[in-house]
Design a protein around this nucleic acid. Structure first.
Lengths: 118, 118
DNA sequence: TTGACACATTCCTATATGGGTATATGTTTT
DNA sequence: AAAACATATACCCATATAGGAATGTGTCAA
């Protein structure tokens, strides 16, 4: 089996740096494709392809405006990532870091103390 | 060019569901490889390979313990993801949603009002 | 020493990619 | 109608995978 499709979920879609850049630009406000092409300095077909991926996972939405297509961000689709990562925040937060040192110490002592499994 | 390596950055490493599962297990505490194999029901070489990716991006650390290798989480490496996603949180938070409706309204009125570019 | 155990690595294959180039589709302007 | 413009799609290629099978490496036990 190969790697999962980029459209498999938001995690895969956002793994590509250029797609995050696109989202960053769209975070400011709705933009037509060509604005993204210019701002990111990428080839137009490439931008369109990235936008398609973002659209398929629900990260952006489109609106027709004459011969332009206005893309806008749908940040809510990032919530799964937010939620997942959020649960790890305590593991690197300063105050918890120091607590962890103490806990690791306790565990070490406990282990060297006769208890076998955990 | 193909897709970026899974070891290119934390975003790519974490795009794989099984690797997130591994991290979820390790979040509870340090574990030897075989514990992960059993808990996740995956083939041992597969787990080892995923662990290597996680190690290369700094998401886990290893410690030799006899013939076992104890893996433990290093959550801090998730911070780049956390920070990036965090900045989008306002876009889906309830109270901001309602504010956005008002803003979109204002923008619409402004656009239909004679102003051309933005 | 020999064997059992715990992991890591190597080799294989099918697959989906990011980027480039060329072209198709649809809209506005002349 | 024809040309210009804005996007999307099709086709090509090199590359890196996830998973499976087999094998290598290092440690402990008998």
């Amino acid at each position: 089996m190969a790697r999962a499709a980029t459209t498999a979920d938001v995690f895969n879609a956002v793994a590509e740096p250029r797609r995050r850049q696109i989202l960053d630009v769209l975070a400011v406000g709705e933009r037509p494709v060509n604005d993204l092409v210019v701002q990111l300095g990428l080839a137009q077909p490439l931008v369109s392809k990235h936008l398609r991926v973002l659209r398929e996972v629900g990260l952006v939405e489109v609106r027709d405006e004459g011969r332009q297509r206005m893309y806008r961000l749908n940040g809510r689709s990032l919530k799964p990532i937010h939620d997942w990562v959020q649960s790890y925040e305590r593991t690197w937060t300063e105050r918890f870091d120091r607590l962890d040192v103490v806990l690791d110490d306790l565990i070490e002592k406990e282990q060297g103390d006769g208890r076998s499994d955990e």
